[in-house]
């Protein structure tokens, strides 16, 4: 019995590892100076929001059984586009944000078509699209940094508090709302469940009459929408955007990717939740605030990622070993060894 209890605990810890890690970080925060100040919390969550959008996109595509490496470039380009259009064409902010988001949708659509119609492996296709996006955005801004200019209305709005007594910026709250919206789609709509099904077993889904191609494209489009919208808002929120956004320090893509894995989204598709990724990313954001040196951040996050992967790989390795065991014989084995002992 003792053994069984222990096993249950291990499974429990593993299942809720993102929550437990968040709690751990929060406890560590008690011992840090100026950690639980409203200002700090507002800044940490606000600055961490971009990665949440990226993580969201990456997770959806991963659930559908593919990989999308373009999320970071999509968001960077969306940020550039938004700021650029406002500065040069004098378009209103709302329109700029919509155009930024649409760019993401378009890219998601292209990715989806490359993967489903041309049957290119998603990872490889996204590498190609990454290059294309990089080229397009360099051409768009000539490699210069674009800034928000003089119109700070939206910047103030996003940085400000939506609810007076909550130390959370409007940007973070929008992010959270969007996350929960996508969560609802994934969990409670037919499209969402089909995304899980296609990721879990594409053949079964096809036999049951699900249009797998459309589902995969939809996953890519949602991913593109999230990355585009997030990037556009982030451009306004931070007031500036450049092509190398996030290439210094730890790349946002890596954070999103790590959060997916730590959160527990299955790297082979079919299982996962944007909420897990969301919690993991908040955890990572606070972790970053906790250890100020970028170096240590990278190491800690990297180690956590590798640990999770090793755990999952070893678990799969052990599972595969006993695949195809005959139930009759296994009962017999238990009886025999039970008698022997």
């Amino acid at each position: 019995m003792e053994k069984k209890n222990f096993k249950l605990n291990a499974a429990f810890i593993n299942r809720n590892r993102s929550y437990l890690l968040l709690v751990l970080i929060m406890i560590c925060g008690l011992f840090a100076k100026n950690f639980y100040t409203p200002y700090n919390i507002q800044a940490v969550t606000g600055n961490g929001s971009l990665v949440i959008w990226l993580g969201l996109g990456f997770t959806i595509v991963l659930i559908a059984g593919h990989m999308d490496m373009t999320v970071m470039y999509m968001s960077t380009f969306a940020a550039l586009l938004t700021l650029g259009l406002h500065a040069d064409q004098k378009l209103p902010w709302l329109l700029c944000v919509i155009i930024g988001a649409l760019m993401g949708v378009l890219n998601g659509l292209i990715m989806g078509l490359l993967v489903t119609k041309l049957k290119i492996h998603a990872f490889i296709a996204s590498i190609g699209m990454q290059l294309v996006l990089r080229g397009v955005m360099y051409v768009y801004c000539n490699g210069k940094e674009l800034s928000i200019g003089k119109d700070y209305t939206w910047n103030d709005m996003l940085n400000g508090k939506l609810i007076p007594f909550l130390p959370l910026s409007t940007y973070f709250i929008i992010t959270t709302i969007f996350i929960f919206g996508v969560m609802v789609i994934l969990r409670y709509t037919r499209l969402g469940r089909n995304i899980h099904m296609v990721g879990g077993n594409a053949e079964t889904a096809w036999l049951a009459g699900i249009k797998s191609d459309m589902v995969v494209i939809a996953a890519f489009v949602i991913s593109g929408l999230a990355a585009g919208l997030g990037g556009a808002l982030n451009g306004i929120y931070s007031g500036a955007a450049n092509v190398t956004m996030g290439e210094k320090g730890i790349s946002p893509f890596y954070m999103a990717f790590t959060a997916c894995v730590i959160g527990g989204t299955d790297i082979y598709g079919g299982k996962g939740s944007v909420i897990w990724t969301y919690v993991s990313l908040i955890m990572i954001a606070f972790l970053k605030a906790l250890c100020k040196s970028t170096e240590l951040q990278v190491l800690v996050i990297g180690a956590a990622l590798v640990l999770c992967l090793v755990y999952e790989t070893v678990a799969k390795y052990n599972r595969d070993k006993v695949l195809g065991r005959r139930p009759n014989l296994y009962i017999e084995y238990k009886n025999e060894t039970g008698n022997a002992k």
Binding site: H196, M197, G200, N201, T204, A205, G209, G270
Partner: peptide, 14 residues
């Protein structure tokens, strides 16, 4: 069956 998906969704797939 899709192993990582819940039973009820497998039952009612599509």
């Amino acid at each position: 069956l899709a192993r990582r998906i819940s039973i009820y969704e497998n039952l009612l797939v599509g």
